[in-house]
Design a protein around this nucleic acid. Sequence first.
DNA 1: GCCAACGTTGGC
DNA 2: GCCAACGTTGGC
Length: 162
Amino acid sequence: MPRYWLMKSEPGTYSIADLERDGSTGWEGVRNYQARNFMRDIMQPGDGVLFYHSSAEPPGVAGLARIARAGYPDPTALDPRSPYFDPKATDQEPRWYQVDIAFEQRFPEIIPIATLREAPGLEAMLVINRSRLSVQPVTPEEWEIVLELANQLPFRAPSGTV
DNA sequence: GCCAACGTTGGC
DNA sequence: GCCAACGTTGGC
């Protein structure tokens, strides 16, 4: 059973264009326990991902990805030179986990969070109510609504890529 | 730049 | 184990 997620990144750090260029990437650097638990325990290859640009103008959903690899220890937690280094992480107790995500599509325009707020059926979406959670589940109903919004964008998004 | 939300830390 | 202080996130 596929699951759906929303994952946030500041585009200045890593954008949907970066993911398109790279094809796939490790979602390193998450240092929040709730977000970690989703990645470590629940996400599975094939799950759908809304790729969200935070602290952007405008902030919103920039495209789609999918989970390419289930949770595994985040190596940056063990690397003293990494900005994500955590001295409490060890090989035996990795503490932080990541997944790999693969590029699916880039929307022709961002779907702004203001549009999500106004869309019927998205009232309970976590990105609206718990904006600080950087990895969050999305219901199948919410996923469908967001894809419909994407298809209403001026340059129709390519179909059949999911 | 401001500020609300909220997660984490640390004193007790 | 509580809770105040503090730091960070992220929309506006």
